[in-house]
Amino acid sequence: MIGLIAFYLFATVTIASAIAVIFARNPVHSVLWLILAFFNAAGLMLIAGAEFIALLLIIVYVGAVAVLFLFVVMMLDVDFAALRSGFTRNLPFGLLIALVLLAEIIIAVSAWRAGPALSGAGPREAAQPNIEALGQALYTRFLYPFEIAGLILLVAMIGAIVLTHRSRSDRRPQSASRQIGRRPEDAVELANPPVGEGMKL
């Protein structure tokens, strides 16, 4: 009963906010609706018994990726008229992608008909927590794909740094250790110049 209410709540809000993402006029509102959609999708995963994936979705996508998304969108100076004028031009391409996605969903649903997700039965009671099961699968059966994925991500990370890094010669960076290591003895000198001679620096 409670699970059913929660499912319909999450599902309705996910779809509604996904639609709102497309139809919101303000891009910042779009991102915020997207975040709501992520959030409710996590709720759906929680109901399906995938609590680790659900929380990971919130931590990674809602907590980090979407924040940066919002960050960029908020700072952009968006011309709304120009944005909307592209609608008819991009419509065929958008429809194509929508059709592909629809086909994928239909195939996926028919492939999963036999599985537990859509057979009407609730998920099986897991013998071990999600995280342990996932860890065991990742580090035994899928060890090589997992390691390769990690390597690719590392390369991507280094690549991003290399691409965006530029060494500038016109700046004088601060050296924190020198700043901290500075003592009054090195910085201040007490001088007592005789009258009429002044200071020599």
């Binding site: 680790f52 990971l56 931590i59 809602v62 907590g63 999600n130 995280i131």
Partner: peptide, 15 residues
């Protein structure tokens, strides 16, 4: 059983 992840998730929402 994912209490700590929940804490992390919720605190990342605060922003």
């Amino acid at each position: 059983n994912v209490g700590l992840l929940y804490v992390l998730a919720a605190s990342s929402l605060g922003v």
